[in-house]
């Protein structure tokens, strides 16, 4: 029940924030108006969605055996992180105030969920498909590379080393019913909270001529999410740096992949048409 309550709460808050901000950021002028436009856009995006589905399918299989592989071959990274950065997170927490704790807890749970969902909806409503394509590809790259790192590296966060404290769970114990469903406490390197938030902020800046106001929302929230992971004692500074690096790699990778996809899809269509006409030709010769 506790999980259900938390989930309902998060869904309600994110839906409310989405409702308000979609009106303010997207407006209604850019929504593709005709049916043909919609179909044309969908035709472009479908291969990306298939790619996303494929990636999710493969990774969900990997996730099942991931922990076993990880314990067999994984490298224990956190002793070295602890050695290098020491008590930085504990120092950061010396600036703790009730207001900051409330703010960063809300950012870590609600802000992050909102940040992830908003661009999916907003980019889907846009009159061009490029932002959505890049977003899908960047999500996939973040997720796949992140998962590979989680298998290769076993790392506990600062709160488990008692470097600082796990502020989120003492401030809001029920939140753990949700986060324990999504996270494992040995998966902290890199910070996916950071990498996905930074990815979204980067895409917001790159496509700023589409939704100028979104930049003003996405960038501050993304920075807050990065800080919150450390403030709440969940990630090391090194995880956050690695998360930022992952974001850069993912966005760069997404733009490269996208151009390959465009060529690939165009090529694919060409081969498909050739195949169809060849089949027709063959059928007509058989009939005769």
């Amino acid at each position: 029940m506790a999980l259900f309550e938390v989930l309902t709460q998060v869904t309600a808050v994110v839906a409310l924030a989405l409702g308000i901000s979609l009106g303010a950021v997207v407006g209604f002028s850019r929504v593709p108006r005709t049916r043909q436009q919609l179909v044309a856009q969908l035709r472009v995006v479908i291969p990306y969605l298939l790619f996303l589905g494929l990636a999710l399918g493969v990774t969900s299989l990997v996730r099942g055996v991931g922990p076993d592989i990880s314990w067999a071959i994984g490298f224990h990274l956190s002793p070295h992180i602890y050695d290098i950065e020491g008590k930085f997170v504990a120092w950061l927490q010396t600036f703790q105030t009730p207001v900051l704790t409330t703010y960063f807890s809300a950012i870590y749970v609600y802000g992050y969920a909102y940040l992830l969902v908003f661009p999916i909806v907003a980019y889907a409503l846009a009159d061009r498909t490029k932002p959505l394509r890049l977003l899908i590809l960047a999500y996939v790259l973040n997720y796949v590379i992140g998962l590979v790192c989680y298998i290769l590296f076993i790392a506990y966060g600062p709160r488990n080393y008692l470097v600082g404290e796990g502020i989120l769970y003492s401030f809001w114990p029920q939140a753990q019913f949700l986060t324990s469903e999504v996270n494992t406490n040995t998966n902290v390197f890199p910070s996916l909270h950071t990498s996905l938030s930074v990815t979204i902020a980067m895409l917001a800046v790159m496509t700023r001529d589409l939704y100028r106001r979104w930049v003003l929302i996405a960038v501050p929230i993304a920075i807050s999410v990065c800080l919150s992971t450390m403030y709440l004692g969940i990630h090391w500074a090194i995880d956050v740096l690695a998360g930022i690096a992952l974001a850069i790699v993912s966005v760069y990778g997404a733009t490269r992949l996208d151009s390959h996809f465009e060529q690939g899809i165009a090529g694919g269509r060409l081969w498909f048409r050739r195949g169809v006409s060849a089949a027709r030709h063959w059928w007509s010769t058989v009939k005769e």
Binding site: M1, A2, Y169, S170, P173, Q174, Q176
Partner: peptide
């Protein structure tokens, strides 16, 4: 339960 704190909320809720 994921943590002792989370478990305590179940107790206080009578679950």
């Amino acid at each position: 339960v994921p943590s002792a704190r989370a478990g305590l909320t179940l107790l206080s809720d009578g679950e």
